[in-house]
């Protein structure tokens, strides 16, 4: 019997002019699981996540998040989704706290959000810079803050695009813990990365994309170690 996932994508295509960024992706992400997206640059991972976040409209295909159609009810979908974009994702002259305030206000979070925000900032070692503009942040600090912002509302669907890029080991550990907690509370996590070993550590299953098309869905264990690396390379070539 086919089980409905928290995220259901069927025949998704996204075109930017002449370029087809995503070509017919089918994907089902179950609630309470972390699914990884692997692939080379330009494979369509980030675009797929942008569509799910309601940032880029699909050219064709069906995209549902918790039963809501992204094209029909983008605001409803955005309420359910927490998104960490691949590049930057931060307004340069606003402070982390101002970012959190904006997210909390627009997501209608109860007043207890401040406690959770402080907890996350501390865990990601950002509490001491919470009131400084993000323009002065290093790349890794920006990544960590983007992850915090994505998970502030404890969303049903957590989309993390390159959350480990340029992040120090402490930040990587904090992110892995956050993913684990999200899975435990029943959220569907979709994580895109170039770092195969970290994808294996955080996700199961892992979907490999090539030139905008899915080429394989593998269990995390199949991609681990040297055998996993060989299998992954074979899928990319």
């Amino acid at each position: 019997m086919h089980e409905h996932g928290a995220v259901e994508i069927a025949g998704l295509t996204v075109r930017f002019g002449e370029v087809e960024a995503v070509a017919g992706v089918d994907l089902s992400v179950a609630a309470g699981r972390a699914t990884g997206l692997l692939g080379r640059n330009g494979a369509g991972k980030s675009t797929t996540l942008r569509v799910l976040a309601g940032v880029v409209p699909p050219t064709s295909g069906r995209v549902h998040v918790a039963g809501l159609d992204v094209a029909q009810d983008p605001i409803g979908v955005k309420r359910l989704v927490g998104y960490c974009p691949d590049i930057g994702g931060l307004v340069p002259r606003a402070t982390p706290w101002e970012h959190l305030q904006l997210a909390a206000r627009l997501r209608r979070l109860p007043s207890t959000w401040e406690r959770r925000a402080r907890l996350l900032l501390e865990r990601f070692d950002l509490h001491e810079v919470a009131h400084r503009p993000t323009a002065g942040f290093s790349h890794g600090m920006g990544r960590r803050l983007s992850v915090v912002l994505a998970d502030l509302a404890e969303p049903s669907v957590l989309l993390l695009d390159e959350p480990f890029d340029g992040v120090d080991p402490t930040g990587v550990e904090a992110t892995l813990r956050l993913v684990d907690e999200a899975v435990r509370r029943g959220a569907a996590v979709l994580l895109s990365t170039h770092l195969r070993e970290l994808a294996v550590k955080a996700c199961d299953p892992v979907l490999v994309l090539r030139r905008g098309e899915p080429v394989a869905t593998l269990a995390g264990a199949e991609l681990g170690g040297e055998d996993g690396e060989r299998a992954y390379r074979a899928l990319l070539d």
Binding site: A53, V55, I75, I87, L90, H99, A103
Partner: peptide, 16 residues
């Protein structure tokens, strides 16, 4: 452009 790369994140927030 005032939002810079943060415009992507702002666009993902649930607001008209």
């Amino acid at each position: 452009t005032l939002d810079g790369p943060g415009l992507v994140w702002r666009e993902s927030l649930p607001v008209r």
